[in-house]
Nucleic acid binder design. Structure first.
Lengths: 193, 193, 193, 193
DNA sequence: CATGAATGAGACTTCATTCAT
DNA sequence: TATGAATGAAGTCTCATTCAT
């Protein structure tokens, strides 16, 4: 029984790698099966179609990612610290999971991922928007555009991460923090907020 | 002779649309040909292979985009104004060219685009890095990380643009400028710089 | 397992016939598959490409042919008798296998057959050259040109066979032997040699 | 007007080379046109179809070949000398025209050459059979098989020629003659015949 | 006559999926 | 449940031939 779990996991991992390296249509199911150590027919016992398979890969990655992003968030008391935690977690996760990072980039927005899957995943980002809701409330910034704030945060975060990717450098807290502080300065977020 | 130009243009446009909507392998060359109003064989007179075709689509988009981004840049005297111009141009371009925006997102980083093509395109972004070189010089910020500054700029710019995309709103100078000013405040860029 | 053998054999036979009748490029793989009673895709499970297929056809023919040419050769004591055996075997084989005869004629020297295949096949003709080596030794004919002798033998043999082909007659030992004796007389090979 | 002749000749020569090197279906008409220095469409002004083209190539080669084989034949008085002349001419011709030699080997018997063409060509070999008719008459060999004699001659002749081809040696009268004499000895043909 | 862009049938080959074992 | 041979629709690309210029 647990064996089944392992096989499923293996197929997901192999698919992730191959889809990223070769594209969806560039990866035959026979190749996934072979690298996963199962017969072609067996693959379809685990995932009825190739389309279902890539959606499951996506869900697995997203859930794992979100768990990591928002992990131990309650330990932090104020908003800036919470944001910093998310900032760091997400950059580190992307550095440590280059294949998953690329998978998101190529497929998260694509037509391979069904709308149902996208909606299901979207819900889990609530913790992030909660933080910005609270910031706006606390700082009494009326008319402030919450969505724009969130987007700016995500943009700064992702592109700071890209830096380490481009430079092929390991994560560096100092560099990352400089970037984070610039973002906070920009939106006027103080240490005590 | 001009007829050939037009046909080529038509094929590029149709390919762009279909690749974005259906993916590379999801778009048969026969479909591209049909929608372009030429025979299957004719397509291959213009582009020897499907791979070459998608690379040409990419190049066409990038060159057009870069022309737009950096257009009339010399009219602006100082760095902040130059950046503002690029900021606006790029957001507007992405709003006005949703298919090209999505094409970049899906394919710019993918293995469909050859390394040769990527390198060729990369060179044209020099005007942007020149601006940041000058900013760093003028403000005497030693040890400043130019690449990180550029990435932060691009991130802020793209994600500000995403806002209009998600909200399905037309471009709004006020909203865009608020975002831009936050970015400048973050890196300490003044009006007179 | 045995079923696979049979299918492979069937495809080889059908290919042989069609390649001879219609040429390599004149024979679509779909036609080979259909006449072999398998699906188009199945053909490629057995032979990865059409090029590999024709090389396998060639190898199969050559090996079968050589087995037949040199069969029971050890029973004969002297060189002339050995040559006679090969002479007869090869003519009879060509009469009984008209398609294989034509296949050799059209393709053995062509660019469809890879150099690797040709070299692999060439090695198996050693028994024939061994006989001529011994003849030259025994008859003490110094300076004799072994290769020329072999070529003359093959030429006489093949063109004697052509006689039956052109006349559409069955094999006739008397006629064949007259030709053989002329060849022996020409090179001075006696019954006791 | 003479210009047309030259162009026709050029196309024939290019076709010969390409058909031998790449096979009939492996040679696009566009490639023949290009290497011949004419436009694709022009080719079809000279030869209505590709099939007609290869038949014309074949006829050109055969006529040239036969002219060479039987040239100055009347100068020789007796049969052996006539045969020797043909023997030499044909071997030399094949050495000097390796492409034409291969063309014959690949295509003379193939389905690319129409039956009409083959029959037309066959007629021109009468001078050779005349010689053997006379030999049989003169030597009073009843029951002798004329066709078999001719075939043996052709076989010996071609395979003697193959010797020089395989050895990549230039023509050598002594070696060639040894072979010829063996053939004559075999059929009992004397110098005075 | 010469040109070469356009045509579209047809070639080889791949691959998601099924099913008998 | 696992297997992997078989399927055949569908994909990319070629090429003999035509025809407007």
């Amino acid at each position: 029984m647990d064996n089944k779990r392992k096989k499923r996991k293996k197929i997901i991992e192999v698919s992730l790698k191959l889809f990223v390296e070769r594209g969806f249509h560039g990866t035959p199911t026979s190749m996934i099966a072979k690298e996963s150590g199962v017969a072609t027919g067996t693959l379809f016992n685990y995932f009825k179609t190739k389309d279902i398979l890539i959606n499951e890969v996506y869900k697995d990655i997203e859930l794992e990612q979100q768990n990591y992003f928002f992990k131990n968030l309650d330990e932090e008391k104020n908003s800036k610290k919470k944001l910093k935690k998310i900032w760091e977690n997400s950059i580190i996760w992307r550095i440590n999971n280059p294949y998953k990072r690329r998978f998101g980039r190529y497929f998260s927005d694509s037509s391979f991922i069904s709308d149902d899957t996208k909606i299901e995943i979207y819900k889990h980002y609530k913790p992030l928007s909660d933080i910005f809701t609270k910031i706006i409330e606390k700082k009494g910034i009326k008319n402030s555009n919450e969505l724009m704030l969130i987007l700016n945060f995500i943009g700064a975060c992702i592109f700071t991460g890209e830096y380490f990717y481009i430079m092929k450098e390991p994560y560096n807290e100092k560099i990352s923090n400089e970037s984070f502080e610039k973002f906070c300065k920009g939106i006027g977020l103080k240490d005590e907020d």
